[in-house]
């Protein structure tokens, strides 16, 4: 057994600075009025292409929207329920994006 040194996990900084949260800007968005059956109960909802800060594009719904959406808005990734596999099937979780709190 070795003693925990200053570079060991036990001594690591514990304050979370949020850097690991996927953030990006809205590349484009639309309001989906006529979705597929699995998403009918949620309509209408916003769908977006989000340009992540590392440059990748990702397709996702927007959530927690209570103001007008615009291209270039800052958003962050959150875990949300996407849909349910039939009436009694598994709940399918995934990612959505919400406005970055300022």
């Amino acid at each position: 057994m070795t003693q925990a040194g200053s570079d060991s996990p036990a001594a690591a900084k514990r304050e979370y600075d949020g850097a690991a949260v996927a953030r990006g800007t809205i590349y484009s968005y639309t309001l989906v009025q006529e979705p597929a059956a699995e998403f009918a109960a949620q309509a209408p909802f916003y769908l977006a292409l989000v340009e992540l800060d590392d440059g990748a594009l990702i397709t996702a719904q927007l959530t927690d929207i209570d103001a007008a959406v615009s291209i270039g808005d800052r958003v962050e990734m959150v875990t949300r329920k996407l849909t349910t596999d039939g009436d009694r099937g598994m709940i399918i979780y995934g990612y959505k994006f919400r406005p970055v709190m300022t």
Binding site: V32, P35, A36, L47, T59, T83
Partner: peptide, 14 residues
């Protein structure tokens, strides 16, 4: 795409 609620028309909207 589909898993996140996209449809062909929604993608055209984007």
């Amino acid at each position: 795409e589909s898993i996140n609620g996209a449809t062909l028309t929604a993608l055209a909207g984007l």
